[in-house]
Design a protein around this nucleic acid. Structure first.
Lengths: 210, 210
DNA sequence: TATTGAATATTTAAAAGAATTAGTCAAATA
DNA sequence: TATTTGACTAATTCTTTTAAATATTCAATA
């Protein structure tokens, strides 16, 4: 009886919202924000365009929701894979690898955020800052653990974590810029960046060691 | 007698070339590459526009020459002020301060290079790479000195220096991007970047210490 | 060889129009 | 009432055109 009802019942609103997110994610990840139209997303699902606007106020909100969705996925993934790790260096290495993995996987999705230097919409800014804060807290937590284990010695967690984050993120940017010609590094370029990040992080961590 | 000859004699070709460089430098530093016209530079000197083309094949070459001119000035400045310093950390601090000083002073001049992500002309690329190489060698030399003094322990100078350079340059970029809205950080923003660079460099150097 | 005025070639800027796409809404459905 | 849609409007992007600004060339000259 329950089964029958389930089959007859229309999908719940939440379910549809997620369907839209997934569909948009696929498009954004494949073609990027600006090369994806609302009409296409709707067509993929055999929804009407207007329905998208019933669930999301505008395209930008949808993009932000997708971004948030993917970032959450990534953070959960990292949290999971980080569980058994206690060593500071190893933890940072794993984070670097995971983040690079996601950047590769969702490059066209991230690209829009990445290159939106001017006039970042209010809510996109929030997602970015929130994500940054999350990464920041993550590093802080790792550093604290390192201190607790007697591995590291740190006076200002907040600042130290930010320094490491900026160095690593900046390194990605400078190398991407250095490689120049389009902001689409190839797989090999990403790997080179990752290698540098790892080495740099190792030295940084050693610089914090007792 | 010599004096008289000097007064009567026309300025040497080289002298005029430098006059053009100086004049272009002033304009580029003040208004940037694209907001400076060849006509303006010529007018400043009461030269004809065509004469500029006698000394420089085109505007881009002139820009590159000016950039090279300023970078050389900066390198000599750094070399001079670095003479009495032996301590690794102090040396890096001084370099950071000097470089930031020049970036501030010639911001509009550098800005064009900075933002020329696509289609960097052949010769501009050469100047950039050359400057990077110089900075790289500079860091290597400092690191070598640190090892010689028994301060540091390093296995791959080339790579280690590059890591430090990328981290520092990247940090500048990421913070500039973070601050966002126009690529013209204010004086305070530059100072904040410099502070981060210094702290980051200190940790990095400690990470290389014996 | 060094220098110029005048002519030409390129690049940028602005305007106008067409085409695409974002976003709205009253009506329909369930 | 909560969803859903087709048809409509508004905003944005893309092209094309034209004009203006600017870079670049060159024959002539000192």
């Amino acid at each position: 009886m329950n089964k029958l009802i389930l089959l007859i019942m229309p999908k719940s609103a939440d379910e549809k919202r997620i369907k839209i997110l997934e569909s948009a994610k696929r498009r954004f990840a494949h073609y990027g924000m600006s090369k994806t139209t609302m009409a296409e997303i709707a067509k993929d699902l055999s929804f009407s365009k207007a329905l998208l606007y019933y669930y999301f106020p505008d395209k930008n909100s949808l993009y932000c929701a997708v971004l948030d969705y993917v970032i959450t996925e990534q953070e959960e993934d990292i949290l999971e894979v980080l569980k058994p790790v206690k060593n500071t260096e190893q933890a940072v290495m794993i984070i670097l690898e995971k983040r690079m993995e996601y950047i590769k996987k969702y490059y066209n999705l991230f690209e829009y955020t990445f290159n939106a230097s001017k006039d970042v919409p209010e809510d996109l800014g929030k997602v970015i800052i929130c994500s940054f804060e999350q990464q920041h807290l993550q590093i802080i937590s790792i550093l604290k653990n390192g201190v607790k284990c007697g591995e590291l010695i740190i006076d200002d967690y907040d600042e130290t974590a930010r320094l490491l984050l900026f160095s690593l993120m900046g390194m990605r940017m400078i190398v991407i810029k250095d490689i120049k010609h389009s902001f689409f590094p190839t797989k090999e370029e990403f790997d080179a960046i990752l290698e540098m990040q790892k080495k740099m992080a190792k030295i940084f961590i050693k610089g914090l060691s007792v």
